[in-house]
Amino acid sequence: MATTTSSDHHLPKQGWYKRNEIAITPWLFLIPGMLMFAIYVIYPIIQSFNISLYKWNGLGTLADNAKYVGLANYEKLLFRDGKFETALINNLKWLILYLLAIPAGLLIAIFLNQTVRGIRLYKSMFFFPFVISQVVVGLVFTWFYDPQYGLFNGIIGIFGIEPVNILGDRNLATYGVIAAGLWPQTAYCMILYLTGLNAVDPEQVEAARLDGAKGHKMLWYVIIPQLKPATFIAFVVTIIGALRSFDLISVMTNGGPFGKSTLVLSFYMYEKALGEFGLKMGYAAAIAVVLFLIMLVFIGYFLWSMYQDEKAAKH
């Protein structure tokens, strides 16, 4: 980053503001955003840490209706809760498999990156899955997998595979839900890559062509490195999406079958705090804190890589 403070251009007789303009301006620009963010995000997060130390059903106020229990919620969650372990493993599956949306999105983006008639409309239609309500996406896939009436078993039957009940199987259900989630997420990544492809340097591509690079070699050695920024954003939004996901789970399996087969932490937290039978705000807050700590790993990685880039840019 270029430095700004060294530029010494002001005249000697200026007002205090003018003299300190460069030091003050950023804060003036930051204040509204930071204020809003502090009130609505930072403070509630601190509150959540606090709530996680109480036994509270979320009714009334924390002061009147809650009982302080120290770290009991964490103790139960980490050592005596079988669902937590399942949810954690499922979260890992989500994290890994959801990343498939990135190459899938790239492939579709490459396919669509042409300038034929009506391509804008096609691009919009390919974007559609991302904007339609997740509730409906979940319903469609549920019916698609339906063992009696669904299309899925018919399709795999063509290849001689025995019918399976994906969402009813404790080992397969999570994969079924993730597959449904990949559809809108792929659309999202596709859009990011479409924009990335737009920025690919045509001269470099031409130069590579002259050197005889073609097809996947061109893609791998010339295009993908240039798409790094788009990949980075796609990676970030996909990780966030994977860790937050619960709309689909709630529609397709409700965390089940058998109470936990498709559970992930964000859904488990929701179930405990707001679910029909969950009135355990303190416990849910503890889950959230743990989830937050897991996310900190990603945030840490994210920040570290960003910091490295910043440092590299300075030299």
Binding site: G256, P257, F258, G259, G275, E276, F277, K280
Partner: peptide, 16 residues
């Protein structure tokens, strides 16, 4: 609520 939730999950499992 909490008992009901856990018990109903167990019943579903039992039925399979």
């Amino acid at each position: 609520a909490e008992m009901a939730k856990a018990a109903m999950e167990g019943m579903q499992e039992f039925m399979v």
